[in-house]
Simulated assay, not measured.
Amino acid sequence: MPRVCGLEVFRLVLPYGRRPESILVRLTDYGGMTGWGEVVDSDPKTWSILQERLAPALIGVDWEHPDELGVVPGGSAADMACWDLWARMRGVPLAHALGGSRTSLMATVRIGAERNLDSLIARVNRHVCAGYAHITMDVHPGWDVEPLRAVRMAYPALGIGLDARGAYTDVEALEALDAYTPSMIERPFTGPGGLADHADLQERVAAPVLLEVGSAVELTEAVAAGAGRALLMRPAALGSLREVRRVHDIAAAAGWEIACAGGQGTGLARAATVAAASLPGCALPCDVAEPPRSAQIVTPPVGVDGGVVAVPLTQPGLGHGIDEDQVRRLAKESHRA
């Protein structure tokens, strides 16, 4: 039975991109076992909540399973740390603790809009040569049919997903892309609220329309509306691994395909995404591209080898060691309770 006797919270500034902030939670059991969690979040409220409310909610509290804790203050970072601690104490990989059955995952790599078609084809070629069998192209009005046609002509057998990032208002414009056999059309319209437009598009195209939702309630509404046939599942955005399983189960029961995606960070949140992607309904290629080495705190790194992501099954919990020296080097602020 886990019983937390201490916790630390770290606020890190990551050395890449727009220098996003990552918050790490480290829980320690009376037996000396630790569990780690992470969320990439620059909202100062998250840091304040973890400082003020996490310790009273967890320290000295007996619990048999993370689901018993309900909504843990601090969101996905604290929830992940509870799951990691529980799985480590049980001696089981987090993937198995969640109900996962996959030992490896096909990966996708995201391709942003390029300056010209030659640059696009060259970039796709680099990833194909690295072993990727699937890519996800960003598309928007003015950069869609022509680049998709060029990639399809160059690589007839390549899996090509399309991420519209909510840039479209015209169903007909997206319908034209279906002629080039995309594997999915992701986030075609802004937000899940325009379910009628999503349903209209899904009726017109053979490719699954891939929706991203923020809760099981939103997914249930989308399924009822026939607003797609596939789900983009981001564990960090769903707030807890319990909600991840609920969303997975709803989508799988409806016959929807599922793709998992991670976020920026140090590798911890991506490790949890890999565990979630091992669930049986997550058959679509996952997006867990390796973060820069300068930001990695996990060993072995979470990354892709030959277009495939291995699910760590030989070690309990998240399945990765933590470089605590690197954590403290990157930490902008820390709190101990």
Rank of each mutant, 00 (worst) to 15 (best):
D197F: 03
S240M: 14
I160C: 01
R110E: 08
A216T: 08
L219G: 06
C286F: 10
A230N: 04
L330E: 12
P93H: 02
G321N: 11
E290M: 13
A157P: 00
V151H: 05
S240L: 15
A150G: 04
H134S: 07
V247E: 04
T108V: 07
H65Y: 08
A251R: 00
S76R: 12
L219T: 05
Q202R: 11
G17I: 05
C260T: 12
P2D: 00
A95H: 00
R204Q: 13
L148T: 04
Y132F: 15
E68N: 03
I59L: 13
D197L: 12
V213P: 14
A289M: 13
H335M: 10
W83Y: 07
V213R: 14
V274W: 07
G75L: 11
V13R: 13
F10D: 12
T28Q: 02
Q51F: 07
V25D: 03
A259N: 01
L177M: 13
G239C: 12
R328C: 11
L174M: 15
R18Y: 06
A150Y: 02
P147Q: 06
Y155A: 05
A236G: 09
V247R: 05
A78E: 06
A107K: 13
D144F: 10
A157L: 05
V4I: 01
D118Y: 04
D138I: 13
P73I: 12
R187F: 15
V247T: 09
L330D: 14
I322Y: 03
G307T: 05
T314E: 13
L279M: 10
V40I: 13
G319L: 06
P312M: 05
P316Q: 07
D84M: 04
A57N: 09
L162N: 10
A310W: 00
R329D: 14
G31A: 14
V311C: 02
I297A: 08
E324A: 01
E257A: 09
L238P: 08
S215P: 11
C286E: 07
A275R: 01
R53G: 07
G214Y: 07
A276F: 06
